Amino acid sequence: MAQTGLTFEGVLDRDALVPATELLVALVARPEVAAAWDQESACAGTSVGALTWHLVNQPQRVIELIAAHDPADPRLTAPITADEHYARAEWLQQDLDGPANVGVRERGEQQASAGHDEAVAAARAALAALPAALAAAPPALLLPWTGLVLRTDDFLVSRLMEVVVHSDDLAAGVGVPVPEFAAATLRPVLTLLTDLAVRRHGQDALVRALARPERAQGAISAL
Rank of each mutant, 00 (worst) to 15 (best):
D195I: 00
V149S: 07
E180T: 12
L65M: 15
S158H: 13
E118D: 06
L141V: 15
A205C: 06
A211P: 00
P139Q: 05
D169M: 06
A34C: 03
D13A: 06
G103V: 10
A114H: 04
N101S: 04
A50D: 12
H116A: 03
L193F: 01
S47T: 15
R200H: 13
E106N: 12
A68Q: 08
L223H: 04
Q93Y: 05
R212V: 13
L76D: 05
A20I: 08
R208W: 00
L160D: 05
E106Q: 15
H116M: 09
H69F: 09
A44E: 10
A20Q: 10
T146W: 03
E32A: 14
A123I: 15
V33N: 02
V174S: 03
E32C: 04
P59E: 14
V178D: 03
C43R: 05
P139D: 02
L210E: 01
M161C: 13
Q93W: 07
R159F: 02
S47Q: 13
R208N: 15
P19Q: 02
T7G: 12
G49Q: 01
A89M: 15
R105N: 08
S113E: 12
H201P: 04
G98W: 05
S41Q: 01
A172H: 13
A129G: 11
A133T: 07
P177F: 11
